[in-house]
Design a protein around this nucleic acid. Structure first.
Length: 670
DNA sequence: CTTAGGG
DNA sequence: CCCTAAG
């Protein structure tokens, strides 16, 4: 059987405390570029992730100062970068501690049946912030690690005058395990300062992911509840966040508890968590799903749409409800780490989530920006913390004969494939993804100290590595986006608020290999183009549903702010493949039946609602009527546009006829 | 929830 | 894309 596991894979936390460069404002051209940040962060993260997943078992750090990490130390250790620091002690000690991950399995509903690891406390403490220049750090790290980065990373932090003084960066990683399966990258201090310790927790050497799974199963709706109050640094953070933001993002768990499964809330939740599938058993008129929620998990073409409907996976339509979109996106699971305040949780404020950990959005990890020490030179030091990395859903085969061990392996492989494929970093400002890598911090208005915190990063699967076969949806999306709309919509930049379900959504693991799951999802857009003719009209464009917003992380503060500001869904230009699918569906179904069109051609593409399709059709018609010179964005083949006009004309006429008929019919009846 | 349209 | 009126 194919089972979809929504396992929260929380993960890497990298404290990020950017401080807007004061000098930046005066300096005129800002030298820091979002792109640089992305690149650097990406590199580091990717490396970390890779190590984490692929490397050895023993955890250790080479940094002279840092002690050897104990296995007990949780998952990821620290990413400690000191860009400016003249100290070079740690130069060369960029080695990431190899760590191993172990999967824990839990039976749905069973709290600990298969669980191997007891859930530890989730306290994630924020280590004292070392002052770091992110860029420098990353850069250094990169250079040391031999990874080639493109672009001028140095720009980010290096001002001409200071760039020289940079000393090798030290990046120490320690692994800490979070009971919930979260991987945290703490800063180097953790080891020394105990910040990273989780009181009362026996931390197995290995990180377990059980927590996530559990969530997936919907068992622990509110992990937080079990979470112990944040301690140490965490508290600090939490309080800070909480203070500023109380609009919290809605946390699934919280919401559930506090709110009735109302429409929007429900929707949002679902979107956010794969686990949603388990949580609510939608009433289906047909009764198909009346049974267990688990059914929802199994994808059947038939039910697909209904499920969607019932689950309300559609993107939030109303901003009103989208408070703290980024928050909403944040994964409850992730968030739950120690940071949570039980009180908040009870209140149902999502803010909690953020505060605590970062704000991992589904599937992604987030970084939180914190305050860093002022940087006179206009550079800013940043402490990067990847708070979480969550892979929302996986599809795996679960033969009845499968052993727990085999399941673990399967999940591990799936995850490894995901992470191992590469990660990329996205930069968020006020919760919005900054697509233009060339923008400077100055231009973005974040050079001021106070605004630095508005900067966030996301960790997402790297498009370049994403294998369509492997990632049917989100991930696939990335690649497609690149391929199809290189100019306009760099995949990396796509982000959005809150609800990303990370790509893992449709990961499927068959045995050891990942295969696209079910969904009748069609091959991939890119493939479609290859075999256009053969594509079933019904086929759909299996695009990733959610942008890899994954780890959106936004400083809690911002989050709160964001929450107030209605979030708009991320713009996701239709690819030619999608247009093709749309045209094909409309040709067959006609206009006015958007729901059917959606089902036919975009079922399983969650981020495209029928309203979106309708709107797209509207714009397509318009596009077809204007001169090519006036068109923008990825050019749509003329052939398609002609089909649009033809179909539009045909169906318009058809509709007219229908109306006449209706008008006439009554008369006849009378 | 769907449609249909305006913004 | 968002927002809404209507059905």
């Amino acid at each position: 059987m194919l089972k979809r596991l929504d396992y929260g894979f929380n993960g890497y936390q990298v404290p990020f405390i950017p401080r807007a460069a004061r000098s930046a404002r005066r300096r005129g051209p800002v030298q820091k570029k979002a792109e640089d940040i992305k690149m650097c962060a990406f590199d580091v993260l990717a490396t970390v992730a890779g190590k984490l997943l692929l490397e050895g078992e023993a955890l250790h750090t080479n940094s002279g100062k840092d002690q050897v990490l104990k296995a007990e130390d949780v998952v990821m250790g620290e990413l400690h970068c000191e860009g400016n620091a003249p100290k070079s002690d740690h130069c060369g000690n960029l080695e990431m501690p190899p760590s191993s991950l172990e999967l824990g399995l839990q039976v749905a509903g069973g709290h600990s049946a298969l669980k191997e690891d007891t859930s530890p406390q989730h306290d994630v403490s924020l280590a004292p912030d070392p002052v770091i220049t992110l860029a420098n750090c990353l850069q250094k790290y990169t250079s040391l690690s031999g990874t080639a980065l493109h672009g001028d990373k140095s720009e980010l932090c290096n001002h001409p005058e200071k760039s020289d003084g940079l000393s090798p960066v030290r990046i120490d990683a320690s692994v800490e395990q979070l009971g919930r399966g979260e991987l945290l990258l703490g800063n180097g201090h953790m080891c020394d300062s105990d910040d990273a310790k989780f009181p009362g927790e026996k931390s197995p050497a290995l990180a377990s992911m059980d927590g996530s799974i559990q969530h997936a199963l919907g068992k622990e709706q509110c992990p937080y509840a079990s979470c112990s109050p944040s301690k140490g640094n965490n508290i600090e953070i939490v309080s800070r966040y909480d203070d500023e933001n109380s609009s919290g993002c809605t946390q699934p768990s919280t919401m559930k508890n506090t709110r009735s499964p109302a429409r929007i809330g429900d929707r949002r939740i679902r979107k956010l968590f794969a686990s949603k599938y388990w949580r609510v058993s939608p009433k289906v008129k047909d009764g198909d799903f009346s049974d267990t929620e688990l059914r929802c998990v199994y994808r059947s073409r038939k039910n697909g749409y209904k499920r969607q409907k019932s689950q309300k996976i559609y993107p939030f339509k109303k901003r009103k409800f989208f408070r703290c979109s980024s928050l909403s996106s944040c994964d409850g699971v992730i968030g739950c780490k120690g940071a949570y305040n039980s009180s908040d949780m009870s209140s149902g404020k999502s803010s909690t989530c953020f505060g605590a950990v970062g704000h991992g959005v589904n599937g992604s990890s987030s970084f939180v920006a914190g305050q860093s020490t002022p940087f006179p030179s206009g550079k800013s030091h940043a402490k990067l913390r990847i708070k979480s990395f969550r892979v929302p859903e996986l599809f795996i085969d679960m033969p009845e004969t499968a052993t727990i061990g085999s399941l673990k392996r399967t999940v591990m492989e799936t995850i490894t494939a995901l992470l191992g494929g590469g990660l990329r970093v996205g930069v968020l400002l006020q919760g919005r993804k900054i697509r233009d890598d060339s923008r400077t911090l100055l231009q973005l208005g974040i050079c001021h100290e106070g605004k630095v915190q508005s900067l966030g990063f996301t960790l997402e699967p790297s498009p370049s590595y994403a294998d369509p076969c492997v990632f049917s949806e989100d991930n696939s999306c990335l690649p497609s986006a690149d391929a199809l709309e290189p100019t306009r919509c760099p995949p990396a930049s796509t982000i959005h608020q809150g609800s990303f379900q990370l790509s893992a959504d449709h990961l499927v693991a068959h045995g050891s290999s990942l295969i696209e799951s079910d969904h009748d999802s069609t091959p991939f857009p890119s493939e479609m183009s290859v075999e256009k003719g053969t594509v079933d009209s019904k086929a759909l464009v299996a695009l990733p549903e959610e942008p890899p917003q994954a780890l959106s992380i936004v400083p809690a503060h911002q989050i709160s702010k964001q929450s107030e500001i209605a979030q708009r869904r991320i713009r996701r230009p239709f690819s030619v493949a999608e247009v093709e699918a749309l045209v094909q569906a409309v040709e067959k179904l006609g206009t006015g039946r958007w729901r059917d069109v959606k089902l036919r051609a975009f079922d399983n593409v969650k981020h495209r609602t029928y309203v979106d399709l309708k709107d797209k059709w509207k714009t397509l018609v318009h596009t077809a009527r204007i001169s090519p010179q006036q068109r923008r964005g990825e050019p749509v083949p003329q052939e398609l546009l002609e089909r649009v006009l033809t179909a539009h004309a045909y169906w318009s006429q058809h509709q007219a006829k229908q109306q006449l008929k209706q008008q006439s019919d009554p008369c006849r009846l009378l």
